[in-house]
Design a protein around this nucleic acid. Sequence first.
RNA 1: GCACCGCUAGCUCAAUGGUAGAGCAGUUGACUCUUAAUCAAUUGGUUGAAGGUUCGAGUCCUUCGCGGUGCACCA
Length: 503
Amino acid sequence: MTTSPGPSDELGAREAELRAQRRANLATLHAHGVDPFKATRFAVSAHADELHARFMSLSAESESPPDEFALAGRLMAVRKMGKGAIWADLWDRTGRMQLYVRQDALGDEQFAIFDALDLGDVLGVNGTVFRSKKGDLTLRVRGFEVLTKSLVPLPDKWHGLVDVEKRYRQRYVDLIVNERAREIFITRSRILAEMRRFCDARGFLECETPVMLNIAGGAAARPFRTHHNALDLNLDLRIATELNLKRLIVGGLERVYEIGRIFRNEGIDQTHNPEFTMLELYAAYWSVHEMMEFNEELFAHLIQTVHGRETLTYGDKTISFARPFKRIAYFEAMQTYGGLSRVELLDPAGAQRALATLGYPPSQTHGQALDKIFGHVVEPNLIDPTFVYDYPVVISPLAKRKDGDPDLVDRYELFGANFELSNAFTELNDPDDQRARFEAQILERSKGDDEVPPPDWDFVAALEYGMPPTAGIGIGVDRLVMLLTDNQSIREVILFPLQRPLG
RNA sequence: GCACCGCUAGCUCAAUGGUAGAGCAGUUGACUCUUAAUCAAUUGGUUGAAGGUUCGAGUCCUUCGCGGUGCACCA
């Protein structure tokens, strides 16, 4: 069910009636010579939060300061007092400002126009501020302009819009009536901007690599398929930005990042949306150790920026991001939390046995088995931010082997609040090793793991030109926003999450 | 993909198988410091869709649609 029908859709009787009333109120405006769709601009001189801050100490007894301000926003509440006075709430991007409208100040004609407005109408107002007897900073309206008419009824002023489906399908209504929704997306935008500033300040170049690729590689996931007509070419949407960003490292850009939309053709749940945003960043001449420092600093900084302190609340947990974060080696974590030894886990048959002991069906590959065991044995224990390092090479096809221990790679993942927050490693730059790992992947693929991407031989060719020692990191931006805004569902932090079409 | 739950007025929610209701919004009236304004009156329904059981279905059964949650899949 939707409240935004096309021309041929049927409206409920009530809805039709409420819309007709709005049209009648529009006609009243026309009768007063007002066309609410005529305005092309309004000179805003102040926002609600600025005025609240500026006049914080203005008392109820004080006279209005002489300064006149012009605000624009949406009319969200009206309280009429008798024939000649109206109190109203105007909301702009920054918050609420109460309006006080008097007939003796505006004149009969203007007052009648204001009296004919509906909730949801967009206004420009000007006047002076005062503090009401109840202590609310208020704009005494000297003049106003109807900037846009709202022709449909709004949800309940107190409960707002609750229906989750409707909130996602008509996010614009959600944003109009639910302050919380506005806060989340304003915070998301601030996080994105702050990430960019943080990276830029350290000499990283923001780069844009293609979304449409012949071979979608750099991660294990099924891609979306599309087609270019003129070239009659099948293309995949990217599942990572990794390989192209590393090509840029080969090219000598040294420090690059992309905050990019990634597409993975997978199921949807509380932490997965088919399109999501990932920060990938690569630094030549860094190892995973420098990256860990960078990671720690970035997260501590973002949490400080958003919350003003180093702890945050997520669900019923309080999590401290005070540096340094905890650190534990991969197999040490498996041993501690699951009593599983490195020797048995590194043996493919041993890993499958451990998996069976946990009550799971066998996995197609050794790597999948390890991932599943880790996810069920270790992850639930990782609430405070924790770097898990020294990953096995079998689940790290693009990472460089650890010096002196060829079963391991220089890689870590950061966990917190029970989910993965980042994934970083020292990048493999030996073209022969990379070629061998791609060949091993061909084998995995032939065994039925259709999430293993086909090899990208040009990437091997790029490595043959020489990629400096490089560390890379991937950070799931949506999940980070979930963490920072205390949301349990990824759809709450994505403006327009994927929904099946209606009808 | 499987299981469970939900879908009733514009919105938020009620309604043992027995007359479909309330609050807000809307409309009319009163009130020139109200703020979930208040007070009085009042309009408003294809109960997600289609079938079935029944004297009688919002309620029970079947199928379908959409959403949510869990599992599976997956970072």
